[in-house]
Design a protein around this nucleic acid. Sequence first.
DNA 1: TCGTGATAGTGTATAAGCTACACTATCATA
DNA 2: TATGATAGTGTAGCTTATACACTATCACGA
Lengths: 241, 241
Amino acid sequence: MEPATNPQSYDPSRYERPSVTVDVVIFTLISQELHVLLVQRRHWPFEGFWAIPGGFINMDESLEAAARRELEEETGVRDVYLEQLYTFGDPDRDPRMRVISVAYIALVRADAQKIAASEESTDVRWWPVRALPEQLAFDHEQILAYAVARLRSKLEYTTLAFQLLPELFSILELKHIYEQILGEKLDKGNFYRKIKESNLLEETDVIREGRGRPTRLWRFRRDRASDKQFVFRWREDRIDR
Amino acid sequence: MEPATNPQSYDPSRYERPSVTVDVVIFTLISQELHVLLVQRRHWPFEGFWAIPGGFINMDESLEAAARRELEEETGVRDVYLEQLYTFGDPDRDPRMRVISVAYIALVRADAQKIAASEESTDVRWWPVRALPEQLAFDHEQILAYAVARLRSKLEYTTLAFQLLPELFSILELKHIYEQILGEKLDKGNFYRKIKESNLLEETDVIREGRGRPTRLWRFRRDRASDKQFVFRWREDRIDR
DNA sequence: TCGTGATAGTGTATAAGCTACACTATCATA
DNA sequence: TATGATAGTGTAGCTTATACACTATCACGA
């Protein structure tokens, strides 16, 4: 509890304190594929290794505010989807000192990447989650693996997939993302039916011309998102704590 | 990231550090009803208020180890289900100083409560979640509400309910718990079928005599639990991050 | 000893939802 | 005007869920 089981001996300042950082796993979609932002470290420890962006919390900001600050520093993006993932705190995860890291997941829209790209430095890159660097700094492999698993899992039963798409998109583009994430082909007809029945999409007048038949574009109804969660598929190996 | 976006200026010890505590929301079943363990504070701040048990982490133990230590100190119980809930870190959640609290959920078996009771001090009590104290210390109302919501949610699509039951139980007792949690009556026949099909229960030779027809008792197959998650019911308002 | 209430457990017709896949539609281009 | 490419619809049949009627086995009292 807050220090009071042994109240008579209470003196918080006695206790040695760990450092607390916030790490943000930033996902986006590039050419229909899921990517994550990593930064390359220039100094010991793990010099040259890729790492999840993050940093120390300020004493006067909330954890989420710290995560948003980090996110904006790295990508220049604001108002994105952000959720707390997990807190990693093994005693020796950082060789320098005890560091507790509160990890967050951020989803950045596909059409917002250019902002990131424009501010990209040589040691900041989007990596496809299917082809990540061999080894990451610290326990970041574990954090990233967990983030990917959680994202995959949640995309199946929430509207998170929409956060990755641009403002307007076709139903088959949406299907493509689901296929990427689920790792399997989906039936076109069934997908259309399911998405339409969900009533989460709003038809627009925009028609995109392409090689075949012109494609109608749709928009995500944010208002509906909170009312009704969209359950795309049930899986037995869900990760969602 | 771990401190290296600005590597040239890196010096972790410069940063002011928050205190980090682990709070454990301990649930159990008493007379078929969900209860939670709270401790009453003896000192400022929130003197006399009920709080979730917890304490500072040691510098050489993991977060989960700290949670298990707290749990054992409070209930004497080991080897229970434990999962990280969420990390609460608003700047002014503790009036004394900046405290980051990593909250855990623990599920204690119904037949293990006596252990807790035997070590109970005057200011430690099991509270039914349906009738909690008006106000809790710090932001513990929020933590507790979140824990209860997450527990309810997860009980529907995991085998967590079994963690609350004694070693041996009847299928209708299990049904009773699900009814408690879901807040609705379930069909007996469908419940039998669903549970049996799930293959999560192991029949025992134990028969309990009662008023009516004798009841066969069952045991939870822990080995199966990891293979196959038991999805009892889908809900649209799930909370599972 | 037979009936009744209480609890335990099974069977099944119907409804609802999902899946697979065949079908139609509309464009560009050769 | 035929062909390929992409967009979108219809539907038969299978699978699963729901509601509810049914059987089973005990204690206990008339």
